[in-house]
Design a protein around this nucleic acid. Sequence first.
DNA 1: AGCACA
Length: 244
Amino acid sequence: MALLERKDMADVNNNINNNSSTGTEVPSNMTIYINNLNEKIKIDELKKALHAVFSQFGKILEILAFKTLKHKGQAWVVFEDVQSASNAMRQMQSFPFYDKPMIVSDLFPSEIYIFQMAGKKKKDQHDTNQVGVGMTPAYGGAYGTTPPLSQIPYLGGVKSMVPEAPAPPNSILFIQNLPNETTTMMLQMLFQQYAGFKEVRMVETKPGIAFVEYGDEMQSTVAMHALQGFKLQQNSMLITYAKK
DNA sequence: AGCACA
């Protein structure tokens, strides 16, 4: 059953690709739609944060978000393949993001949108200037069994190789191997999910590291284990106790 | 609330 639906999805995918006999590259962009996003966040930061949090599911081709009245609080994340989109939708459902649970849904097959993907043209052309078809097949019904939401983004194949903590337990965690673009807010979103969260401190002069403080050592330990190895972009976070 | 180009 589930396998059949998987296969159907693959067929949709292939059809899209096969239909691209027009000479134009027509990627099958598997897009998810997100709303209930915090509208106070600037578009640029929002996109970066979405990328940071969704890239663990697969290659992201594009993230769209606008600040027009009609499109506030919403975003589209275009994945390279449908499996990534599908996983992202299930696993990030209700993920607390800037203090609001994000609502993630698929787009229906009837909603086929044309995008410009690569080689964006200038807007001297009109609505017909677009290249590439973005659509998401109706895989929505394919998972009757949405897994219980662990607020922790799924770690995928990342095995929880929790390194032997060299430092003794500390209510302050030391985070390493962060992408340079990581912001305080991104980390806050991840770490504030765990009880006792107090604050994130980044060291401007030293990119790639941060300190996250909890109320006590037990709380920091829970968060450390939960987020150990969490992938931001390509980087797996390394979390240890801060030195006293 | 608001499903595609600040």
